[in-house]
């Protein structure tokens, strides 16, 4: 069997019904080499303190539930391992920049509203009628958007984005990357409907290309690139609209 060691996990605690302000609580957790931070939290919940509250589900880095700050870095707790921190203690906190619901769980309603605002679904052109056949799309055409379709909505990029931290109206990395995913899809013709979101102050212009979003993304989505590409799109749209004939958008 793998050797068992112990590590101190320090968790941010906050219960809105009883606490005025967040505080930290430490737990001593035995762990083996393959144990993740999530499994450490589960150990606490099961054996030490049933009141510690956090979200998790798939434990294989695809559902996007378990994002949190570990030693100030936004990570998925299921694929962050205790062995990499031992013998130091680790500090686990809810994702930065979001309101705390309780302990390590954050309120994600603001993000969900932003996700909805980008029209994140295929809008084919009016004359595109594939009938009962799948449309054609070559592997090269798929590559144009597939990277941006990998987002698991884990919100690490929002926790890493200083601009979102300063101004929560900013549409933010994941939602804008998703917007670009549809715009870049050869089957989509809905770009015009999404221009408002892009062009707004809170759209791509809320970004100053810090690039932390792409750094922390566990799925290598590169939202920073998606946003910067759309700054060019928005700039073209800004100036070229004067050249377009009247009656057309």
């Amino acid at each position: 069997m793998t050797q068992t060691r112990t590590i101190i996990i320090e968790c941010l605690r906050f219960h809105p019904e009883t606490d005025e302000a967040p505080y930290y609580q430490s737990y001593e957790v035995p762990f083996t080499a393959e144990m993740s931070v999530l499994e450490g939290l589960q150990y606490i919940k099961d054996h030490l303190d049933g009141t510690l509250t956090f979200r998790w589900s798939c434990r294989m880095a695809i559902c996007g539930s378990c994002g949190c700050m570990v030693n100030n870095e936004p990570v998925l707790s299921c694929q962050t391992f205790l062995r990499d921190y031992h013998p130091s203690r680790i500090r686990v906190e809810p994702l930065a920049h979001f309101p705390i619901l309780r302990d390590l769980t954050i309120d994600q309603t603001d993000f969900l509203a932003k996700l909805e605002s980008v029209h994140p679904y295929l809008i084919p052109s009016a004359d595109d009628d594939p009938g009962d056949q799948p449309r054609n799309q070559t592997p090269d055409q798929i590559q144009d958007y597939l990277g941006y379709a990998q987002c698991i909505n884990c919100l690490l990029c929002y926790a890493a984005c200083p601009q979102y931290g300063l101004n929560e109206a900013f549409t933010g990395p994941a939602a804008l990357a998703l917007l670009h995913r549809y715009n870049a899809d050869s089957r989509d013709a809905g770009k015009a409907q999404r221009m408002d979101v892009i062009n707004a102050e809170e759209g791509v212009w809320g970004c100053t290309l810090v690039g932390e979003c792409s750094e922390v993304c566990p799925k290598h989505v590169d939202p920073a690139r998606a946003i910067n590409q759309n700054k060019i799109v928005s700039t073209q749209d800004y100036f070229l609209r004067f050249l377009k004939p009247r009656g057309r958008r």
Binding site: A200, E202, G203, W205, K231, T235, Y238
Partner: peptide
């Protein structure tokens, strides 16, 4: 509809 940003002017400069 959100107002359009004039940032493109400054961003392109």
């Amino acid at each position: 509809m959100k107002p359009r940003s004039h940032e493109p002017i400054f961003w392109s400069l």
